[in-house]
Amino acid sequence: MTLSTEYSNDGKQFIIHVKGKFDFGLVQQFRQSYGDLNASTDSVVVDFRETEYIDSCALGMLLNMRKSLGAGDKPIHLVNCRPEIRNILEIARFDKLFHID
């Protein structure tokens, strides 16, 4: 399984882990993963620690998620990025829309 999700202990944070490749193969699965969030969720975390590759489609998926969650109402954190992936996110200027850590 390349995509897995969990809630934080207090239920306020929704965490998505993407393992290996984050590309167009995950379009549907990714959208479904956040389609039914708990009402108490106040932020979303995408944990990239196991993500080796991303492509522009993944960037599109992240933007769609942001839009679907109210474009900033629920902050989205992109965390634990490898330097190269972080580089890609920053080239795409995602640091303006997401909290990259």
Partner: peptide, 15 residues
């Protein structure tokens, strides 16, 4: 060391 970079470039061009 450059595999993520190579991947994204190759993937974009191929796609």
């Amino acid at each position: 060391a450059y595999k993520s970079q190579i991947f994204i470039v190759l993937q974009e061009i191929y796609n």
